[in-house]
Write a protein that binds this DNA or RNA. Structure first.
Lengths: 190, 190
DNA sequence: TCGCATTTTCAGGAATTCCTGAAAAGTGCG
DNA sequence: CGCACTTTTCAGGAATTCCTGAAAATGCGA
């Protein structure tokens, strides 16, 4: 592995973390290298930095592209493929959450809806369905909230996150100032 | 596997999902069985339902306990250990997020802070540090927000999530009503 | 303390996932 | 078209993770 020490620390850590998230270690490392690179890199440059086989890097890049975490680019006068991560880190977060939702949450919601349609054949099934409904409703609430957040511009989103629970206090304040304000909470339902 | 069909669908799906999240399939299945169970189950009951070996179930339960996702209980007059998941699904979410933060985010923040302390030895390292700082600041913002949310009672949290981006509109409204309101955003810093 | 019920540990085989080199396929230029 | 360069595919070996049965440890009542 041919990397400045500081970068190496990060790349190894990121690879480990990746493997706890169902992404394999080398894919995590490839991503990490691209994330800190000053310019787009081609596959051979990644091979040189990480000491993996060419084919492994090719497969890793393919997977990262499938996740839309990495962008393919071309350098004029060079036939090779170059890859980079988005400059904007919030864009990365958005993509990551969106893809995970698509692959994991959405199919789970579908499965939950299907099992909730079935007619329970026993007490055990009645109880199980009640639990599954709780899980379903929770995921619906979270995905609804997420859809809202995804729609905000980044600056607004950062404002909200920075406020944190102070939002809560401000809403109470607002309710005192504007007693009919509760209406705002109920109109325009999702 | 000896389960009502509806439960079986859920258990198998949950096992698959678990394996995409770095949790192994059988641990996911054990959790799923406990989640929909009407009462706490002992290890042999889980063995009967899932057709795993006794020792595998023992290891799985140990892992779930380490994650605090499962509670050990005793039934009067019975020496065996019984296990259950919390009734309150929001409690489950809180535990899950807390544990993942502790195991993944916190060590990552530590690593990022350490690499940011180092003196860069090259342009590549200067640029890498800038990227790592972006990631660090992002994680700090998110964990700060999370700490705030964790502190709210569940009902308040659900209110905020239900509001979604409408919070944004309400804050704008509030700023119009109470021009000096911005002060509220800046005092009492975290 | 013994005996029984229960849980835990762990070595090693099974299953799965990962990684590689070699070969095939794709691509654009002369 | 033919060639050189590049990427992709894939069979099979390497590495890792998972799972099991047997044995050890634990806990409790008599």
């Amino acid at each position: 592995m041919q990397l400045p020490p500081l970068v190496q620390t990060f790349v190894l850590h990121f690879g480990e973390m990746g493997s706890r998230w169902g992404i394999n270690r080398t894919v995590g490392q490839i991503y990490a290298v691209l994330f800190v690179a000053e310019r787009p890199l081609n596959a051979d440059e990644i091979v040189a930095r990480l000491g993996l086989s060419r084919s492994n890097v090719s497969m890793g890049l393919k997977e990262l592209q499938a996740w839309k975490l990495v962008r393919l680019q071309h350098v004029p006068g060079d036939r090779r493929d170059y890859f980079s991560t988005p400059e904007d880190i919030w864009q990365i977060v958005r993509t990551l959450v969106e893809e995970r939702k698509k692959r994991e949450i959405d199919p789970t919601l579908t499965m939950l809806r299907e099992t909730l349609m079935q007619v329970p054949q026993s007490d055990a099934e009645v109880h199980a369905q009640a639990r599954l409904r709780e899980m379903h409703d929770l995921l619906e609430l979270l995905t609804g909230w997420y859809a809202d957040m995804q729609r905000l511009e980044t600056d607004r989103l950062v404002d909200l996150l920075t406020l944190g629970s102070k939002v809560q206090k401000m809403l109470e304040l607002k309710d005192r100032l504007l007693p009919r304000g509760r209406k705002v909470r109920e109109d325009d339902g999702r």
